[in-house]
Every structure is written in C-alpha cells, then in structure tokens.
C-alpha cells in the first residue's frame, strides 16, 4: 500500500513538466526515504535523478519498497488537471496495475480522482558516486535559462569554462560566435540573484545545448540552479525542490576522441 499526500501539489506538477520532455517513461521508486526516480533520456546522453523526501509529504505511507512504472506524458496530462493550489495524493494498492491521483481543492469543495494504468518498465539503475567537483556555480535559474536559450540560436554546443575570473559560455555556428561571461556577484539584495563561483581547479567542458535547454524546464521549481563540473565528467545541473528534495540532471560532455 502506497499513499503519499503532498499539500503543495503544484510541486509535483512542476516536477513532471521538468522531466517529461527528457524521459518518456520511468520507474518511480518508493521507499521509506522518499519518492524518487532515476532515468536516462532515450539517447542515453543525459540522466535525470529526482528525490522527494518522505518528510516533505504531509502523509507518507509506503509499506514496502516498490517501483511503479509510469508513462510520464500521461502522468503529466493527469497532473495538469490538478489546480495549482490543490493537495495531491498518490495512491497505489499492492499488486495493482493502476495508480490513483487524487486532487483536493484547498477549501475541500472539489475532489477529483484520476486512475492511470501502470507499465512494466525495464530500467538500468546507475550508481552515481558522491563526488567533490572541481568547480561549481550557483546562479539565478532564470539567467541560466536565458543563456541556454540565447546561445542555442547561434550554435548547437556550448563550452562552459570556469576560471577564477568567472564562468564563460561559448558557442559558435554558421552565423558567428558568442561568449557570455558571468562573474561572481554576491553583493545583491536578494540571495537568489547572486552568482557564486567555487573553483578548486579551472574546468572547461563542451555540451550539447539541446539537453541543457531541456533541463531548464525545471526553472519554475527553483530560483537558483547549481552547475557542478569536473574535467572529463558529466555536468550536474541541480534544481532544489524547496527543502524536500531535488531534480538533478547529468549530461555527458562531448569529448575529443
């Protein structure tokens, strides 16, 4: 028996919008720790890891660790029917091949339930080690979205270079080249407008912009995004979900063979 009640239902709506374009179907893993997911995109270049910790739910019942396979496009369709202020409850009975999403309006005058068919999904789970990254950048998520969007009108890939002077985003295409440099700026009114650069070692990596653009679908979840990079390793693009968890995207760099 699984029963998860999330008062801030809009978070789940935003999570689905953040991952459904990258991953079409995935297993959600439910344990006493929380509701999580790890899935690769269809071309196996990017990976998304979601965590919604059990403490973040108003009610969290998960009798045994289970994995429920869902089509994310269909799940997003159902969650779109929930109001932004609605409380969302996810329910699944043991052995059932369906999951139920229940939406309650804040004043309890409208209660809807949507039942969705589950799927059997074969998925490969990868072990992602906790790593100290050589460089990490915290910046406004809107700024990162803007940079990815702007650069993808010029080129297909972006080189992200971190030095002590700042972080540089470089692209080039048929029409020319573009460089955007963001410097550390922590002397701002609001912490969410700050850009903070931590650098143990300078790092420079190249990535396909279309994936980074897809990751920015998570922008409504968080004001701040963190980019973590080490030489020859995937970049981690992290959006925190309040204090209950995160969406992390991992993207393999393009490497000179």
């Amino acid at each position: 028996m699984l029963e998860l009640r999330l008062v801030q239902g809009s978070l789940l709506k935003k999570v689905l919008e953040a991952i459904k374009d990258l991953v079409n179907e995935a297993n959600f893993d439910c344990s006493s720790t929380g509701f999580s997911l790890q899935a690769m995109d269809s071309s196996h270049v990017a990976l998304v890891a979601l965590m919604l910790r059990s403490e973040g739910f108003e009610h969290y019942r998960c009798d045994r660790t289970i994995s429920i396979g869902m089509n994310l496009t269909n799940m997003a369709k159902m969650l779109k029917c929930a109001g932004n202020d609605d409380i969302i409850t996810i329910k699944a009975d043991d052995g059932s091949d369906t999951v139920t999403f229940m939406f309650e309006s804040p004043s309890q005058d409208k209660i809807s339930d949507f039942e969705m068919k589950l799927m059997e999904i074969d998925s490969e789970h990868l072990g992602i080690p906790d790593t100290e990254y050589q460089s990490s950048i915290k910046m406004p998520s809107q700024e990162f979205l803007r940079i990815c969007k702007d650069l993808s009108s010029i080129g297909d890939t972006v080189m992200i270079s971190v030095t002590k002077d700042g972080v540089k985003f470089t692209t080039s295409g048929d029409i020319g080249t573009a460089n955007i440099v963001c410097r550390q700026n922590t002397s701002v009114d609001e912490p969410e407008n700050a850009t903070e650069i931590k650098m143990q070692e300078p790092v420079s990596l190249t990535f396909a912009l279309r994936y980074l653009n897809s990751f920015t679908k998570a922008t409504p979840l968080a004001n701040i995004v963190t980019l973590s990079m080490s030489a020859d390793l995937p970049i981690v693009v992290e959006y925190k979900i309040g204090d209950m968890g995160y969406v992390r995207y991992y993207l393999a760099p393009k490497i000179e063979e």
């Binding site: 690769m40 196996h44 789970h125 990868l126 072990g127 992602i128 995937p234 991992y250 393999a252 063979e257």
Partner: peptide, 14 residues
C-alpha cells in the same frame, strides 16, 4: 571533432 559519449559510460551499474 568532439564525440558524444553515453552517460552510462561514466557511472557503474547498480
């Protein structure tokens, strides 16, 4: 030219 590696090649299964 730069080649795109798969994400799985960076992480161990499991």
């Amino acid at each position: 030219a730069k080649q795109q590696r798969s994400i799985a090649s960076f992480f161990s299964p499991g």
